[in-house]
Write a protein that binds this DNA or RNA. Structure first.
Lengths: 145, 145
DNA sequence: GTTTTTGGTCAGCTATATTGACATATCTAT
DNA sequence: ATAGATATGTCAATATAGCTGACCAAAAAC
């Protein structure tokens, strides 16, 4: 038994607390900007995923967000009405709707991201490259567990 | 300019996405157990912080959760009615209420934690000690940015 | 041509948060 | 003693984001 201190319950409890803080802070930074557009965090998460996976289908988005289609539909309707996104019929399978940001949506995303980026950027700037790589590795192990 | 790839926008966007997944997964694991007690994630977060900081005051908890006192009060009322916590007058300043888990609360916490622990434990078990330490360091820089 | 898949929608409900106003007990300072 | 500040509790109304269940239509797959 070596230094497996980080597998101790108290340490794990600390991590559970820290993950909550990290999420909350990261996603609360851009709330003022969202409010300008009458959007909330639900819209934010959708926009973020659409920007990262341009052209994804409704069910792709559903699988990433893990909410019901009724919940997502309200969010998408708001975004369409606000002219932030467009839905296009899928070329291969026209039952699918592919989701794209339009100009207004891209502008909104950039505003949100600029605000949100600061926190992560500064944290990484004060870390070395090895730390960031290892942060990423552990994070993805937590997700894919 | 060396390997500052991790400071690139696309990388940072990925991290923002990953932090969302990590939080969501970590806090959705124990939802079935919470439901047995008619509690939700709001109660879970409060119980977690009370266990980690036994005897903390209402305003301490408020500062950690960053919600309004009205919101917290509903949660605390539920926990008191369910006999999971007790509030005691502060010894030094009797305006303060100090919050403690009682037996039922401790049992509930252990059930929740056992469920939630798996994910983190397995992720760490498959990482080396250096990775976990660096994960922790970067995480706290994100929080305290 | 029947069945399955993908998506949209209506209606109602629940959980968790908000704002604003007001009440009470207790501590601190004069 | 009393005035003011602090910690907490509570009422009422509202917002946000999720849920279940039912049902419908278009398009694809068999």
């Amino acid at each position: 038994m070596r230094d497996l201190l980080y597998l101790k319950d108290d340490q794990i409890k600390d991590f559970i607390e820290q993950i909550f803080y990290a999420y909350r802070e990261t996603y609360s930074d851009p709330k003022k900007i969202l409010k300008k557009y009458s959007f909330g965090t639900a819209h934010h998460r959708a926009i973020h995923l659409i920007e990262r996976h341009e052209g994804l289908t409704v069910s792709d988005l559903l699988n990433k967000l893990k909410i019901t289609k009724q919940s997502l539909n309200r969010v998408l309707r708001d975004l369409v009405n606000n002219k932030a996104i467009v839905l296009k019929k899928g070329e291969v399978d026209s039952r699918h709707r592919q989701i794209f940001l339009n100009e207004r949506g891209k502008k909104l995303f950039e505003e949100i991201f600029l605000e949100q980026k600061k926190r992560i950027y500064n944290a990484f700037k004060n870390s070395d490259s090895d730390s960031v790589i290892k942060f990423k590795n552990v994070l993805s192990k937590i997700i894919n567990e």
